[in-house]
Design a protein around this nucleic acid. Structure first.
Length: 562
RNA sequence: GGGCGAGUGGCUUAGCCCGGACAUAGCGUCAGCCUCCUAAGCUGAAUGCCGGGGGUUCAAAUCCCCCCUCGCCCGCCA
């Protein structure tokens, strides 16, 4: 297992960084990834030039003559000046060490940490099936969760069930008042959506229904047994439907936390009591908070004038509970929750509670406009999975006609999952997207199946090779380029965690596959002999293992044939 | 009106937080590559005032200011 703070790369980085600081006498040290130029690069010369009025290229040259030996001694690297740029090149032991680590199971795992993290994602209202917008939340959240576990954290994944919202009250009203029998073979969440859409149409025609819905909400907050039971029943049925969808996406939760529990157990009442005592509290029929110090113009309402709590109050109770049981809280939320999320963070800080880190993602819309469960305007995740799986099956059938149907179906299922998850996770969360069937059904480059294919190719080579002696001394440019990509994996895992940006891993996996494919076409493995064959097979094994670990962290099956 | 996010070749997209050496890749277009380890692949070509304008800097896609366009939010809904 790789220790993140003692890795070979980090050691060399730190040593070089130290020498740069020493030589420049500057507080600021610039040491960056060298990319195509070198293993590490520095533009320290420009800083020195500014501070000491020494021409940058001259300083860089002087550094090389004065520090070459020291660099070799402490970091096993050579340094060259390229004009004002300093380029550092690690010696052969670097990539040899990388290959040794990368061929071990679990490569990229970071040191175990005693930190307990709770990560909440998806948490969609149970009033209709998950659609392509919801699953952006699920996939970002699940990928992040997998990365946290890979990075050695203790993690619990939660789904916060909004079981007392207006939407659910509307659903319950629909079941009480409309023709609402389930159709033959209809999935439970789809059934609920149908009733929800119908109920909303009735509300549009007759606004008097709104009062009946309000009454239901009041009853549920009071804990009226019959009403509570009705709410629970429909919410549970919807969650059963979600479970099928989420399983199809390889997305798992450890715990479902019900919003109404925070009313029942008194937590909401207690947190309202604490909020009342805050200097920012304003009680005037309603209970509200003045959050101008956090930059919010409008008051944040906690309790209605009729004495009932709003969603925000329950959410505060939920987060206080999370804070009491975990060291760190992470929430994955849509961009529409930015304001409410910031208000939540601010209020928790005022209360002296842990505030969550919130990962926001922008909206997914359809070519014809934004999605709406109420209007029945959405592409459900179930339809997406079904359609992508169908296309994947056709594709497998064309490519591998010799396989039996069961095998082709199994591959199609994994390929479809890869296509969907990758298509969503590859885009940075702050980009709003328009759902595109062509993109979703594309299994070529920059897709999940492309990376799976590179992995399957590596598996195939290893299978045909049989036993071989490990050899860690690489030589050709292609081999070295691939190994350098392999080396980045633990660093990428670390960055995904630090920046809460899972798409970095998606980009990385694609780049590793690119490098490997290029190597594959230029350097024969099985047709080479002796140590050349051994070292290339060792490299293929490192790539196979790294791709497998990357894919699994992305929640994609690392299949060995396709 | 205010707040947040986005704007990168025809389309999609990385890089932006933390400024540096020819701006990442895919789709599409054009030209090639399967008697050879899986062609869901590889190679090459064309296509970019990195939304516009100022500024800071030796150096700006990246930092600062202004403007434009698009999305989201601004409820005693959740």
């Amino acid at each position: 297992m790789m220790e993140d703070d003692t890795s070979d790369f980090k050691k060399r980085y730190d040593a070089i960084s130290q020498l740069l600081q020493e030589s420049s006498g500057s507080k600021e040290v610039v040491l960056i990834e060298g990319g195509e130029h070198a293993d590490l690069s520095s533009t320290q010369a420009f800083i020195v030039a500014k501070e000491k009025k020494i021409p940058p290229a001259k300083w860089a040259n002087d550094f090389v003559t004065k520090y070459s030996q020291k660099i070799t001694d402490v970091a096993a690297a050579t340094v060259k000046a390229s004009g004002p740029y300093l380029n550092f090149y690690f010696d052969d032991s670097y990539l040899a060490n990388v290959l040794k680590e990368a061929t071990k199971p679990g490569y990229g795992s970071l040191a175990k940490k005693p930190i307990r993290v709770v990560l909440e994602h998806t948490s969609a209202n149970p009033n209709g099936p998950l659609h392509v917008g919801h699953i952006r939340n699920s996939i970002i959240g699940d990928t992040l969760a997998r990365a946290f576990r890979k990075a050695g954290y203790r993690l619990e994944i939660q789904y916060y069930v909004n079981d007392m919202g207006r939407q659910i009250a509307i659903v319950v009203w629909g079941f009480d008042n409309l023709d609402s029998a389930r159709h033959e073979g209809e999935k439970e969440d789809a059934h609920i959506a149908r009733v929800y859409i119908a109920a909303n149409r009735e509300i549009e025609k007759d606004t008097g229904i709104t009062r009946q819905v309000d009454k239901l909400m009041q009853l549920v907050e009071e804990g009226d047994p019959v009403t509570v039971k009705k709410f629970r029943k429909e919410v549970s049925r919807c969650l059963d439907g979600f479970a099928v969808t989420l399983q199809g996406l390889s997305v798992a939760h450890d715990r479902f936390v019900w919003e109404s529990d925070f009313i029942r157990n008194g937590d909401t009442k207690r947190i309202i009591g604490r909020i009342k005592k805050l200097p920012q509290a304003k009680e005037d029929g309603t209970l509200a908070l003045d959050l101008t110090e956090c930059g919010f113009e409008k008051e944040y309402v906690i309790r209605r004038s009729d004495g009932t709590s709003v969603y925000g109050a329950r959410d505060l109770a939920y987060h206080a509970w999370k804070g009491a049981n975990f060291d760190r809280i992470i929430d994955v939320l849509g961009a529409d929750h930015k304001l409410i999320g910031a208000q939540l963070q601010c209020t928790l800080k005022l209360l002296g509670e842990k505030a969550p880190d919130i990962v926001h993602f922008e909206f997914v819309s359809l070519p014809e406009g934004s999605m709406s469960t109420r209007a029945g305007k959405f592409v459900s995740a179930d339809d997406l999975i079904a359609e992508v799986t169908r296309c994947a099956y056709d594709e497998v059938t064309v490519r591998r006609p010799e396989l039996d149907e069961t095998a082709r179906k199994a591959i199609a299922k994994s390929v479809a999952l890869a296509a969907i998850r990758y298509d969503i996770v590859k885009v940075s969360p702050e980009k709003s997207t328009v759902f595109d069937w062509n993109e979703a059904l594309n299994f070529e480059r920059q897709s999940g199946p492309y990376i799976q294919y590179a992995h399957a190719r590596a598996c195939s080579i290893l299978e045909k090779a049989g036993d071989f002696t490990k050899c860690y001394e690489l030589e050709t440019e292609q081999e070295i380029a691939v190994a350098k990509q392999v080396a980045r994996f633990p660093i990428v895992i670390g960055r995904v965690i630090a920046e809460l940006r899972p798409h970095l891993l998606a980009t990385y996996a694609r780049e590793l596959a690119d490098a490997f494919n290029s190597f594959y076409h230029f350097e024969p493995v099985l047709r080479s002999a002796g140590t050349v064959r051994d070292r290339r097979l060792t490299l293929v094994q490192a790539v196979q293992n790294t791709l497998q670990e990357s894919l699994e962290t992305l929640g994609i099956d690392a299949i060995s044939t396709m």
